[in-house]
Design a binder for these strands. Structure first.
Lengths: 208, 208
DNA sequence: ATACATACATACTAGTCGGTATGTATCACC
DNA sequence: GGTGATACATACCGACTAGTATGTATGTAT
């Protein structure tokens, strides 16, 4: 029986399976054997593409995680809507689509940061790049809104962007502790309240 | 050579060592042998006091962690100062005392929530009680401030308390990803800005 | 003093996991 | 159509871990 060799597909399948396994179990508890079982790839093939488990994990962060998250915050670039409204819409979506399982899984970025940032410097740097890019996307969106009078002129956008990332990760994080989605939802509603406070005083009454 | 037997001290030493080990490594990576080495207690003694590793972990949460955190939020009960000022003071303290190591370790509660909440229902419930007590302490402090005109009358205190817990845990969480304390600090400054927005509009200009 | 319970100690089991050594099939290229 | 490099496959190793089995020392009640 002839078997086609497709190294890119093999590598991609390993990355995708590793992402899921790491998301569900964390990096250290993620089992190489589980990843192999999910994909049908053998151990020799895995260790051909990646020198060790840490390299696989970092490739997951740099290639899979970064790409996925970047796609999420791309919509912040929409120039037709003010950033506060955009962010409120994203929160509404998060509340609407929240279900027990996704809340229990948590944010793959935050999960890895909590687990690995203090233990492995290379990991920390890879994760830090994702977080920084997220903050930068938020900051530029807020600045755009500020220049158009949609965001309070006295807001420190860099500070607010950092806090927004932290607050959102915090909401997802504490949500994992709830039996259902209520804790997650109420935290996000509190966050929405904060977001509205970023608007200029003149707009606070006008917009919801 | 006679050796005094002090079961309470033995148990307490195990709990204290387990708390540190779990804080540094996470629960699953926490090594029973390390805990034994730290204390000089033997494995037989440990398994005499705790039926298994999970029970040890939950005892750490219920007895050590809960007590420690409760001590932190007790100061919110001070009736002489308005809650927003109290919370701003706690944030200033956190910024002032932040150093690389403590930021890298993270919040022991949040670490455990991220790691264990989705994996072990008993763990989740123990952690949930700590989180709920924290939220409740914040909520009652905010309500007290509200009844005294120190907090915006239109604030949903339950929502805000939940968001405050989430935001703080988020700040500590994303801080772990920074090389130093800058990310942690800037996030907390953003949080301070949010806290000031909880004051009645009439006080915003007056107080810092 | 006897009988029993609690509190520990030590050696070991059984299993898991990341990683490696070695072998084989397929491809690119001369 | 050889030939060397690439891409896999399989069997295995060594380290480590939670937990147990079994024995012993200490305290206590009668």
């Amino acid at each position: 029986m002839k078997v086609k060799r497709k190294p890119d597909e093999t590598r991609g399948a390993l990355l995708a399976a590793a992402f899921e396994e790491i998301h569900a179990q964390g990096f250290r508890a993620a089992s190489i054997d589980n990843i192999l079982a999910r994909t049908g790839v053998t151990k020799g093939a895995l260790y051909h593409h990646f020198p060790n488990k840490a390299a696989l994990g970092q490739a997951v962060v740099n290639e899979v995680l970064f790409t996925r998250m970047q796609a999420n915050w791309q919509q912040l670039n929409d120039p037709d809507t003010d950033p506060v409204t955009l962010l409120l819409g994203m929160i509404d979506d998060a509340i609407a689509h929240a279900d027990r399982d996704t809340v229990a899984l948590g944010c793959p970025l935050n999960n890895l940061v909590q687990e690995m940032a203090g233990l492995d410097e290379d990991f920390r740097q890879s994760l830090s790049k994702v977080q920084s890019a997220w903050r930068a996307a938020l900051e530029s969106a807020l600045q755009r809104g500020q220049s158009r009078g949609q965001v309070r002129a006295n807001l420190d956008c860099e500070q607010a962007a950092a806090f927004l990332v932290a607050a959102y990760e915090g909401c997802v994080g504490v949500g994992k502790c709830g039996a259902g989605t209520e804790v997650f939802t109420i935290c996000l509603q509190g966050m929405a309240d904060y977001l509205r406070s970023l608007r200029p005083a003149s707009q606070v009454a006008r917009l919801g």
